[in-house]
Design a protein around this nucleic acid. Sequence first.
DNA 1: CAGAATCCCCCAAGATACTG
DNA 2: CAGTATCTTGGGGGATTCTG
Lengths: 139, 139
Amino acid sequence: MNLDAHLPLPPPADGRTCPVRDVLDRLGDKWSTLLLVTLAQGAQRFNALARAVPDISRRMLTETLRHLERDGLIWREVTPSTPPAVAYGLTPLGFSLMPPLGALIEWAEHHQSKIAVARERFDKLPMRVREPEPASSVS
Amino acid sequence: MNLDAHLPLPPPADGRTCPVRDVLDRLGDKWSTLLLVTLAQGAQRFNALARAVPDISRRMLTETLRHLERDGLIWREVTPSTPPAVAYGLTPLGFSLMPPLGALIEWAEHHQSKIAVARERFDKLPMRVREPEPASSVS
DNA sequence: CAGAATCCCCCAAGATACTG
DNA sequence: CAGTATCTTGGGGGATTCTG
């Protein structure tokens, strides 16, 4: 398998100036991915999103949506009625993220059982199997 | 675009029991992705990894490697010589993650400029453009 | 309805020092 | 060389309360 074809990372060593880090860090926070996936099914209003992701606090919902909007991944539309209605949806840029993101999610779904097994095996290891005692033939 | 084809998420709303979260959370931490990508170029020894990723502390390097090993994404091989030599490399499971992960990285590289522009635009917004004063026609 | 503001806690992660 | 052990801090994120 040619990995370079998949991993054209010019500066993989430098973490500070690497712009890829910025993007990946965002996706790595607790709610961004989940919200993007939810919005991929269609534009939603604020409370609809809150219901779709029950365990998110209002604060984090607002904050995460703000970040995603800032990055241009979602749009925000205010209908100034009373009470106001605010809708969110994916931008074209946001939609363009879906295929790779979906692929990653599919990978996770497809291999979750293997990972669970690996974790179980690792955890029941006697803790010193990985560190074989240094042959005590010293005396 | 058919998003369901990319996003077969049975329980997208439940965050606690969703096993996809576990996996994605790991990839979302500060060093996992970078180490996986580095190891994709070939197995490396501990200090070689430390040199390849200069700004990681030894503690985080050890800890992140341990997590990845626990998840079955990388293997760890101890050669009990003096001084000991420990090598790390991707397992088949780890390699299987590379295509989707590489795709995500490519997406990030390809769209970083758009994101940068979006952020700039957002940040120079007068802060109240997004919140038009509610038409006070309520009487 | 859609947030803003505030308080608080936990832990990821850095720095430093020691070891087989 | 390849790690531990300990101390410390920033900020991510929860709970709660207030408002237009």
